[in-house]
Computed example of a mutant assay.
Amino acid sequence: MPYDLKPCAVPEPSATGDLTLFERVYPAPTHAYRSPFQRDRDRIVQSRAFRRLAGKTQVFTSRASDHFRSRLTHTIEVVQIAREVACALGLNEDLAETLALVHDIGHPPFGHAGERALDRCLQRHGRRFDHNLHALRITEHFEQRYAAHRGLNLTLAVREGIIKHSRDYNVATHPELADYFLDQSPPLEAQIIDLADEIAYLTADLDDGVESGLLEVSHIVRHVRILARCYAAVEREHPEIDDKYKFNESLQLMQNTLTEDLIANTRKNTAAIGAKSLADIRRHPRRLATFSPKVESERLQEKQYLYDTLYTCHALDLEHTKAEEVVTALFNFWVENPDELPEGYFEESEQEGLARVVADYIAGMTDAYILMQYAAIKRTIRR
C-alpha cells in the first residue's frame, strides 16, 4: 500500500512551520510504549462522551429491547471493520481504530431524528447542527480531564479525521477549520471510516429490523440484491439449517463481501494513480476509498430499501415524532428560560451564544436523561 504512518514518537514540525499529523495543540511528552494514536484512542475511550454512547439510539431505542444496537455497540462494530480494512491495506490501524471510536461521538440523543430536530431549532437562530463539528467541539472543549487545558488534546490527524471522515468542508463557509487541509483529501485512514460505518449499519439494521418484527427475511431476500446473492450461496452450502441461521450466515457473508470489495477497490484506486505517499493521497481530487461500481450499486439499493421499509415505517415514525417533540420543547424552554440551565452552560452562553449552548447541552444527553428532563420541565410548565 502507498504509505504507512506508524511513528513511536511525535516528530518535530517541518522546517516550514507546518503542523504534522502527530502534533497536539498543547505540547505533550512522548510515551515510552504507546504511540500518539494509541494515546488518542485511550483518551477517547475514557471520555464521558464516549460512555454516553451506550445510552443513545442507533435505530431502535434501548427501551424496546436489550438486543438492539446502541450507538456504542454500533461504534464497536465499525471499529472491527475499520481495523480489518486498515490492516489489509497496510494503513495505520491505530489511527483507523481511533477514528472509528470517535466517529459518532457528536450525535445527540434519539439518533438522526434528534439530530434533525436540533438542526431545525438552531436554524431559527441562524446556526446549524453538524455532528462532525460537534464531535470536534466535544474533544476540544467539553471534555475536561487535564489540569493544564480543556479538551482531550488529540493529534491533528485525529482531529482532521473527526471533521472530514464523512464529508468535505471548504474554507469559505468554515474559516474556523482552515488548519485542517480543507483543500486536500483526507488520509486513507479517515476515508475508510465512512464506508466502514456503512458496512456496519447496513448489516446491523437488517438484523435489528428482523429482530424487531418490522422486517421479514423472505421480503428482504426478494428485494435486497446483495443479501439475496449471499442467501443463495448459504442455501447451497447449508440447505438443511433453519432459516434464521441461513439469515445470520447471509448477513455475515454480506458484511464480508462489502468489506473485501472496499479493500480490493481501494487498493486498485491507489495503484491506478501510482500513490506512494500521503502527499499523493492528499493531492488526488477524489476519495480513493470506494466500493466497486457493482457493489456500490447494491449498497445504494439496500440503503434505499432500508429507508423505504424500516427507517420511515409507521412504528419508527412515531418514535421520530416523539423525539422531535422532546428536543424541540426542551430547546425552546431553555432558550426562553436560560437561568434554568446548569451554571456552567449559562456562563458559556456569553461567549458561544444561547442557542448554541442549549444545543450543546441537549446533544450531550442520553435518551433516558433527556426524557427525564422533558418530564421535569412539563411539570414546571404546568405549575
Results as ranks from 00 to 15, higher is better:
residue 2 P to C: 09
residue 108 P to N: 06
residue 250 S to R: 09
residue 227 L to S: 03
residue 240 E to K: 10
residue 190 A to V: 01
residue 286 R to W: 10
residue 37 F to T: 08
residue 295 V to R: 03
residue 355 A to K: 00
residue 52 R to P: 05
residue 219 H to P: 07
residue 345 Y to N: 00
residue 53 L to D: 04
residue 296 E to F: 10
residue 333 F to P: 07
residue 112 H to I: 08
residue 149 H to P: 04
residue 304 Q to R: 15
residue 253 L to K: 13
residue 54 A to R: 14
residue 375 A to H: 13
residue 64 A to W: 13
residue 347 E to L: 15
residue 5 L to G: 02
residue 72 L to H: 13
residue 206 L to Q: 03
residue 105 I to Q: 03
residue 206 L to R: 01
residue 12 E to H: 11
residue 105 I to W: 00
residue 269 N to T: 08
residue 108 P to C: 08
residue 36 P to I: 01
residue 35 S to L: 04
residue 242 D to A: 15
residue 154 L to T: 05
residue 378 K to L: 11
residue 364 G to W: 07
residue 309 T to A: 14
residue 4 D to P: 06
residue 138 I to M: 06
residue 293 P to Y: 10
residue 43 R to I: 07
residue 164 K to P: 02
residue 287 R to Y: 07
residue 30 T to W: 14
residue 35 S to F: 03
residue 261 D to G: 03
residue 110 F to N: 07
residue 290 T to K: 14
residue 170 N to W: 09
residue 350 E to T: 07
residue 30 T to S: 14
residue 175 P to W: 04
residue 301 Q to N: 12
residue 239 P to Q: 02
residue 358 V to F: 00
residue 222 R to V: 03
residue 365 M to E: 13
residue 162 I to H: 05
residue 352 E to P: 04
residue 246 K to T: 09
residue 175 P to I: 07
residue 241 I to M: 15
residue 206 L to F: 00
residue 289 A to E: 00
residue 5 L to T: 06
residue 24 R to G: 05
residue 274 G to C: 01
residue 6 K to H: 11
residue 102 V to C: 12
residue 332 N to F: 03
residue 204 A to V: 08
residue 348 E to K: 02
residue 28 A to F: 13
residue 85 V to H: 00
residue 362 I to V: 04
residue 115 E to P: 05
residue 364 G to V: 04
residue 292 S to N: 05
residue 89 L to W: 00
residue 378 K to E: 14
residue 71 R to M: 15
residue 113 A to H: 13
residue 222 R to L: 09
residue 369 Y to P: 07
residue 188 L to E: 03
residue 271 A to R: 15
residue 155 T to P: 05
residue 81 I to Q: 00
residue 87 C to F: 13
residue 114 G to P: 05
residue 334 W to L: 00
residue 94 D to I: 06
residue 152 L to H: 11
residue 312 T to E: 15
residue 177 L to G: 02
residue 153 N to L: 09
residue 308 D to A: 11
residue 106 G to L: 05
residue 275 A to Y: 02
residue 383 R to L: 12
residue 322 K to T: 08
residue 75 T to C: 08
residue 168 D to N: 13
residue 372 M to G: 10
residue 210 V to K: 07
residue 8 C to Q: 13
residue 122 L to G: 01
residue 134 H to R: 06
residue 134 H to I: 02
residue 237 E to S: 14
residue 115 E to Y: 03
residue 27 P to A: 08
residue 272 A to F: 04
residue 172 A to F: 10
residue 284 H to W: 10
residue 102 V to I: 14
residue 112 H to G: 10
residue 119 D to G: 07
residue 191 Q to F: 01
residue 186 P to R: 12
residue 274 G to E: 01
residue 153 N to H: 05
residue 151 G to V: 01
residue 197 D to R: 01
residue 68 F to L: 06
residue 202 L to N: 04
residue 289 A to C: 03
residue 227 L to P: 02
residue 191 Q to G: 02
residue 278 L to W: 12
residue 242 D to M: 12
residue 127 R to W: 06
residue 237 E to K: 12
residue 167 R to K: 15
residue 74 H to S: 01
residue 137 R to I: 05
